[in-house]
Design a protein around this nucleic acid. Sequence first.
DNA 1: CTATAATGTGACCTGCTAGTCACATGACTT
DNA 2: AAGTCATGTGACTAGCAGGTCACATTATAG
Lengths: 225, 225
Amino acid sequence: MPRQTFHNLPEEKRGKIINAAIEEFAEYGLENASTNRIVSKSGISKGSFYQYFEDKQDLFMYLLTVLEREKVEYFKGKHPPSMNMDTFQYFRWMIKTGMEFNSAYPRLVQAISRVMFNEGMYYKNFANIRERSMQGLRTIIREAIERGEVDPSVDVELAVMIMETWSNAISNYILQEGMKQKDIMKWVRSAKTQQMIDKMLYVMEYGLRKTESDFEKNFQERTTP
Amino acid sequence: MPRQTFHNLPEEKRGKIINAAIEEFAEYGLENASTNRIVSKSGISKGSFYQYFEDKQDLFMYLLTVLEREKVEYFKGKHPPSMNMDTFQYFRWMIKTGMEFNSAYPRLVQAISRVMFNEGMYYKNFANIRERSMQGLRTIIREAIERGEVDPSVDVELAVMIMETWSNAISNYILQEGMKQKDIMKWVRSAKTQQMIDKMLYVMEYGLRKTESDFEKNFQERTTP
DNA sequence: CTATAATGTGACCTGCTAGTCACATGACTT
DNA sequence: AAGTCATGTGACTAGCAGGTCACATTATAG
């Protein structure tokens, strides 16, 4: 984590460094990011950089906390439209609000997801961060089972994996398509995009809602002639 | 593509170079792969390398053709269990056979998917390769619609995206989990793993089988109280 | 055996990287 | 005004990168 000297900096200077870092990581990932470029982009000297941060990874870790803080702040300002939502409606709301957040901070999200999901495979350090979000999904599914919205015989771990994959896939897809647009936020909020997201989530939801017995019945019907 | 001198090489030497390249790309991706390491691992000199290949990317492109050739060869040896399969059964067979291939050549597949899906986003050169596979899916879906297996009002592009994402996600998941095992092939073929794949595909399939009108009915029921 | 062509080699070049450190500058204290 | 401490600086080191090239070795032909 950054040293105190960094936090003492005037906000403008700190912002310039953060923005330079976001641009650099979004463009080059963690491994190929160049401290030299970050330093010259943000208008500070090499020595200062190493006075603020231990190294590149330290700076990136700081960006993670920035993302987390901004995201919490964003969700605080948005309340679920209703209190009587079932699990899938809630999940849909979470995904969509997350998507709006992504549109509001596209470069920050791009920088972090690039490192986390692409190089992440090989940086075991990030495994615990992923584990945390999976823990949340696990809880959601268990609660859904208790409420009778998901069949009790559903494999929780598998459902977690499906939901995680699905929400990552949607996020990536939206981010990639959105980056081609002039105004991401507008594009994400458009009826067409919203409907597309609904449809994709519907595919996942409908599969999960089905009972295990249903699966076995259907599956055997088609594999044993 | 490699120069003739490379193809003239004795098979053993060629194999050593290919293996060294696979290991290097699997470990470091394209950008961070080091020709120096490849050269020393495969026991040839720097000069020879540049006599065989234009550069790193040239070598990687060659690996792509190796993968394609091996895959075609592998699928030739495996025939679909039945001729009377519906689209989803065929898709399932394709996915599973592809998975078996991945288990047979885990490092080669890892090397290529690491570059294609992780860094690939930023290497526009690979876009056409992806486009080709999407073209295949598009055809599959159109045929499924003609056969009445998928509702005609389904958005083909969306279905393509879902199937592509889904099959990539499963492949990546299996590859990642499989790499933790001693014997990948055995693990992939185990009843437990096979059933897991079936379940994941079932989620996708069940969502796609549903008609658009079904979606709209269900969707409105829950969003308009 | 000689001449010619093909293949192989590694020292060397330039340019980048992450990280260091002796020194300069500014700000606050006594 | 002098002293002290925090902050800022960029030339410098060591190491690795991709790529080149004059020369060495081997194979083929006459």
